[in-house]
Design a protein around this nucleic acid. Structure first.
Lengths: 126, 126
DNA sequence: CTAGGTGTATTAGTGCTCATAGGACACCTA
DNA sequence: TAGGTGTCCTATGAGCACTAATACACCTAG
């Protein structure tokens, strides 16, 4: 059994959905620092996707600092390094602005958006 | 002069960047209800993109309820209809969850994320 | 040492989206 | 009528996503 769930939405790249599922599992604590991560071939078999697609996701997750490779042995969940404010900004600025624009367009108030975000935050805690 | 700015980022579809720029301009109030919107051919000329690409953006913005067409005359910014809570949820749930996951991964607290969002909200007011 | 696991790389082919190009039509206004 | 508007059509090229089948270097367990 895999330590995360992937819901394949047609139209979106399979590799990106796998990446998102892993990020979500890490945020939820279902994947913790030091946990061993399924091999490329296991992912391929369990998710019924091509080994290359699985490897693409693993490669990007490694470059993102979420997984780390031990050559010849396997992959583990890496200890998350704390990033600087500038680095966090570079990553978050776009999705934050995009979300705010969408919320304004839908007629929400700032308070309503914050309430929705707090709820989502707490739902991800376990 | 166009009532919005489009910054072409290579790798992302031109039509989607145009759509995003228009949404942003509406959220900022640079485009207001009733304002006339540039024609497909004007967009094509000013932005140096194909007329089909411009039309694709206009079509999607119309379907999203942001623009409205007056046949033979032109396009206008439509009055925003207030959506139900359920409809707003369907649109916002995904980006909110995605943002929360990313913020948690980067080690931010809920308070830090809210502060960043409030700042972005206010910066878009004018 | 060998067998079997790991990540990695290569080459090839298919299908889809994006963007471009050129042309055409129905509609409305001046 | 002339010129603007949105809309539609076919065609082409580029790039990406995914699949497929190999092959290689590395490490561990037996």
């Amino acid at each position: 059994m895999l330590p995360f769930e992937v819901q394949h939405q047609p139209g979106k790249p399979v590799s990106e959905q796998l990446i998102y599922a892993v990020k979500k599992a890490v945020a939820q604590g279902r994947l913790q620092t030091g946990d061993s991560f399924p091999s490329v071939r296991t992912l391929s078999r369990e998710l019924r996707i091509n080994p290359n697609t699985a490897q693409k996701a693993v490669t990007q997750l490694t470059q993102a600092g979420i997984l780390e490779i031990e050559p010849g042995i396997g992959t583990r969940v890496r200890k998350q390094a704390k990033l600087s404010t500038a680095e966090a900004s570079a990553i978050l600025d776009e999705p934050v602005e995009s979300l705010v624009i969408e919320a304004k367009r839908l007629g929400l108030t700032l308070e309503q958006l914050e309430a929705r975000m707090r709820k989502t935050w707490k739902n991800l805690n376990h």
